[in-house]
């Protein structure tokens, strides 16, 4: 219900910058949702610029230290979706959590991070319960 209210509020307040910044369109490509979502939340394409996605998808065998290899055709399809719907940011920075806007929004003490229960900084849903639906307002 809360989600419905928020979605409705967002619909009517679409022009309000503060709210719009907290809504990021969710992943709506089934392959991306499945393959990326197996090991972490399927991050929205708008969270990184196209250049970052391109480099990430070109090196899945060493995906931040994990082997996330996919068949080439699958990786290409996912990359196309991500780059076509990419956001802004520094294309030389691969991690969402090292983009300037992200660090600005998450400038918390180590203690606060620990208290959040997040497994790591990319455990978005530990704090943003509706992150997968694109709602990041609850911070």
């Amino acid at each position: 219900m809360r989600r419905l209210l928020l979605a409705t509020a967002l619909l009517f307040a679409g022009g309000t910058a503060a709210l719009a910044e907290d809504y990021i369109p969710p992943v709506n490509d089934p392959t991306t949702a499945k393959e990326c979502g197996e090991c972490h939340m399927a991050f929205q394409p708008a969270l990184l610029p196209a250049g970052s996605w391109h480099r990430i998808m070109g090196n899945l065998s060493d995906h931040f230290g994990e082997n996330a290899s996919l068949p080439p055709a699958t990786a290409t399809a996912i990359e196309s979706y991500l780059t076509a719907n990419a956001g802004r940011g520094d294309p030389n920075v691969l991690r969402i959590t090292e983009q300037r806007w992200w660090r600005h929004e998450h400038d918390f003490s180590d203690r606060a991070w620990k208290r959040s229960g997040a497994a790591s900084k990319i455990d978005c849903v530990a704090c943003h319960r509706d992150a997968a639906a694109g709602l990041y307002e609850d911070d």
Partner: peptide
């Protein structure tokens, strides 16, 4: 289960 690094439920 739970991914050791991301916390994602498996």
């Amino acid at each position: 289960g739970k991914h050791y690094r991301t916390g994602r439920e498996i």
